[in-house]
Amino acid sequence: MYQFSRIKINKKIIIFLMIITVGFIIIFLDRIFNVKNNHKSWTVLYISIFYFTSISLGALFFLGIQNVSQSGWSVIIHPVMEKISSFIPYGGVMILIILLLNTMDIVHIFYWMNSNLYNPIFLEYDKIAASKRIFLNIPFFLIRSVIYVLGYSFFYLNIKNISRTLYISHSLNDYKKLYFRSIIFIIFFSVISIFMTWDWVMSLNPHWFSTLFSWYVLSSFIITGISTITITAIYLNKKGYFPLFSKSHLHDLSKYLFSSSLLWTYLWFSQFLLYWYGNIPEEVIYFIKREKIYNSIHFWMLIPNFIIPFFGLISSKNKSNYKIVFSISLVLLIGHYIDIYNLIAPDVNERFCIFEIIGSLLIIGGFFIYILYSNLNIKFNSSEGNPFFKESKNYKYPYM
């Protein structure tokens, strides 16, 4: 039976990374507990947690799509997708903690959680925020957030357990369970992710709304998920732990990267064009605010998120080049972090601060990588029990 080889990580690298991370944690915590910097530090921490959680959600969603479509080519990569999804429960709990700190008035990221906004006797009274109180109230908001985290965690653990059982049993009934559970997850994710992005991102500015927003953010989830899957698969293959991963599999992953980056760009342009054409003050404030704070960063981020992947992956030859695809995947991860930062930070009036961004990325990113490679370090299971395993193992892209 084919299995992942047990991954050995150089202890010196771990110690070196731990020293750097601990140093940043000390400085970062100093800023968190410094009253003047409290707001800004918690914001960039929230952005990093949301970003890495979105990567795991994107990977699990992509895995669900592969199961439901019964794609034969991707079966050997399924375990990698599951491992990347393993951060979902941890990221979800960390987001819930930050939300609770907001409700307790310790952290001030969500503007609408200020109770004075809803009382006309206060100068802070906000008529627009008050009109949305049926949806934007703390108890209902927390209940919804708990449902998101529990729901995503349940489907991740359930799909993982069924896959493990399938690996042992090679049973067609277990495969059918995986298939139908993936269908339910995709339906759940397609609906719940809309409300999740409204709550965790768009509600940061209750004066602004977008009908395309949830789909726009969902496309970013998919891109970062596929990029991380690609980087991990290439890394494991180059280290000799994932020998069945071939250029044919890489070519198909690259096609998904190419097409999903086009989807993101289409949604970006659709939102921008509608706002520009309509010129409604409540809508265009989204772009005006970002232009003033970050000098039109919403245009500059088209370079890593559209132009580089478009011209880098338009060639079929480039799609099967490990170095090119690996580099473009990294560029996309950086580009979509900028996108997530651009979605959240301006709505809490935060200016770009490279120190806090690096610190938060080291802390949460280090934890994400630790969870990922801790799971990869466990002797698990390929997807050998999947009836399409042999097809995936012998898969050859026809035009290569």
Rank of each mutant, 00 (worst) to 15 (best):
I229N: 12
Y256I: 10
L218H: 06
W200A: 08
L250C: 02
I222K: 07
K177C: 09
I234K: 11
L172I: 06
T197K: 07
L166Y: 04
S248W: 04
K239S: 01
S171R: 04
F185K: 04
R164V: 03
S261G: 08
G225W: 11
K239L: 00
S182F: 07
V201L: 04
I231P: 15
L274R: 04
K239H: 05
F242D: 08
L273M: 15
S261T: 03
S261C: 06
I192E: 14
I231Y: 15
Y241S: 12
F258L: 13
S171E: 08
S210C: 03
K238I: 01
K160H: 10
S214E: 11
F185E: 08
F180I: 00
L178P: 03
L274S: 10
L257W: 03
W268M: 07
W268A: 12
L204K: 03
I192L: 14
Y266K: 05
I222S: 11
K255P: 11
S190Q: 06
D174N: 07
S182W: 10
S259Y: 08
S259Q: 13
I162F: 15
Y266H: 04
S260A: 06
L166F: 10
I184P: 13
F258I: 00
I194R: 05
S246D: 07
F209Y: 11
I222H: 09
L236N: 12
T197N: 12
I186H: 15
S163W: 13
Y216V: 08
L262N: 12
T265D: 13
G225M: 14
F185P: 11
L166T: 00
D174M: 01
T197F: 13
K238E: 05
L250I: 00
H170G: 08
D199C: 08
L244G: 07
I183E: 15
W200I: 13
I222D: 12
D174A: 01
I194F: 11
K160D: 15
S203T: 06
K238Q: 01
S219G: 10
H207C: 04
S210M: 07
K239V: 05
T232L: 10
W200Y: 14
L204A: 03
I183W: 15
F209M: 10
T265W: 15
F242A: 07
S259D: 15
F221H: 09
S260N: 03
Y241V: 05
M202E: 14
F188H: 06
L257P: 00
M202D: 09
Y266C: 01
D252H: 01
F195A: 10
S248H: 04
G240N: 06
I184V: 13
F272G: 07
R164K: 13
W198F: 00
K238M: 05
P243K: 09
L257I: 00
Y167A: 10
H170M: 05
F209K: 09
I194P: 12
G240D: 08
K176S: 07
W208N: 06
Y266P: 02
I223E: 10
S270L: 03
H170Q: 14
K247C: 02
Y179C: 04
S214I: 00
K239W: 05
Y235R: 14
H207K: 05
L178T: 01
V191H: 09
L267P: 03
S254T: 02
F195I: 08
W215L: 07
P243F: 06
H170Y: 11
V201T: 04
F189L: 14
L218S: 01
